[in-house]
Amino acid sequence: TEYKLVVVGAGGVGKSALTIQLIQNHFVDEYDPTIEDSYRKQVVIDGETCLLDILDTAGQEEYSAMRDQYMRTGEGFLCVFAINNTKSFEDIHQYREQIKRVKDSDDVPMVLVGNKCDLAARTVESRQAQDLARSYGIPYIETSAKTRQGVEDAFYTLVREIRQH
């Protein structure tokens, strides 16, 4: 089974770092803004072998026109913010609204991801993020692309959301 996953969120929150940590098991430290990259990885989730087709997208506003296209083809979405960047957390709402509009559905598989949880300088409390996820009816997972904490959990949870859909 193949799953088309799309990673969305503001610029600099760590979308590529999360994806590369999942696929290649290493942490990319330097920031190089993405336009669009796709990665494929075969994994076993709950005993089922599946192929993850992951689209890593641009957070930069100037590429926002490309969003409709990949939102149409994606089956599930990782909505990523950084726990030390309140603005990126506030941006999640717009991504969710755009996904709902493009998919013409209120019920699209999504996982809210709070990345950079290895950093002490948190400005978005776990509780705020949990409340937001609960209001959307989606899971919330904290990750660190640096330490790998929660990385597999985030992507695998999204696959489970798609399966249950």
Results as ranks from 00 to 15, higher is better:
residue 1 T to S: 03
residue 2 E to R: 02
residue 2 E to T: 03
residue 3 Y to W: 09
residue 3 Y to I: 10
residue 8 V to A: 02
residue 8 V to K: 09
residue 9 G to Y: 01
residue 9 G to M: 07
residue 11 G to A: 15
residue 11 G to P: 14
residue 12 G to C: 15
residue 12 G to W: 14
residue 14 G to D: 05
residue 14 G to N: 01
residue 15 K to W: 00
residue 17 A to N: 00
residue 17 A to H: 00
residue 18 L to V: 05
residue 21 Q to T: 13
residue 22 L to I: 12
residue 22 L to R: 15
residue 23 I to K: 15
residue 24 Q to K: 00
residue 24 Q to M: 02
residue 28 V to Q: 11
residue 31 Y to G: 02
residue 33 P to D: 01
residue 35 I to L: 10
residue 36 E to V: 06
residue 36 E to L: 02
residue 37 D to K: 02
residue 37 D to A: 02
residue 39 Y to T: 00
residue 44 V to P: 06
residue 46 D to E: 07
residue 48 E to C: 15
residue 48 E to F: 10
residue 49 T to C: 03
residue 50 C to F: 03
residue 50 C to R: 02
residue 51 L to C: 07
residue 51 L to Y: 06
residue 53 D to G: 05
residue 54 I to W: 05
residue 54 I to Y: 01
residue 55 L to G: 14
residue 57 T to P: 04
residue 58 A to R: 15
residue 58 A to M: 14
residue 59 G to V: 10
residue 60 Q to A: 15
residue 63 Y to T: 15
residue 68 D to R: 07
residue 71 M to S: 04
residue 73 T to W: 04
residue 74 G to K: 03
residue 74 G to H: 04
residue 77 F to K: 01
residue 77 F to S: 01
residue 78 L to Y: 08
residue 79 C to P: 02
residue 80 V to I: 04
residue 83 I to Y: 13
residue 86 T to D: 05
residue 87 K to Q: 08
residue 87 K to F: 04
residue 88 S to Y: 03
residue 89 F to M: 06
residue 89 F to H: 02
residue 89 F to V: 05
residue 90 E to A: 08
residue 93 H to W: 07
residue 94 Q to I: 02
residue 95 Y to T: 09
residue 96 R to S: 05
residue 97 E to F: 08
residue 100 K to S: 06
residue 101 R to E: 04
residue 102 V to N: 01
residue 106 D to H: 07
residue 110 M to T: 02
residue 110 M to C: 04
residue 110 M to A: 01
residue 111 V to T: 11
residue 111 V to Y: 14
residue 112 L to H: 04
residue 115 N to M: 15
residue 118 D to S: 13
residue 121 A to Q: 11
residue 122 R to G: 12
residue 125 E to S: 12
residue 126 S to V: 10
residue 126 S to F: 10
residue 127 R to E: 12
residue 127 R to K: 13
residue 128 Q to T: 08
residue 130 Q to M: 01
residue 132 L to D: 12
residue 132 L to K: 05
residue 133 A to P: 03
residue 133 A to Q: 04
residue 134 R to G: 12
residue 141 I to G: 14
residue 142 E to N: 09
residue 143 T to Y: 12
residue 144 S to I: 14
residue 144 S to D: 15
residue 148 R to H: 15
residue 149 Q to C: 04
residue 150 G to T: 14
residue 151 V to Y: 15
residue 154 A to F: 09
residue 159 V to L: 14
residue 159 V to N: 05
residue 160 R to F: 10
residue 162 I to Q: 06
residue 163 R to K: 14
residue 164 Q to H: 07
residue 164 Q to V: 04
residue 165 H to W: 14
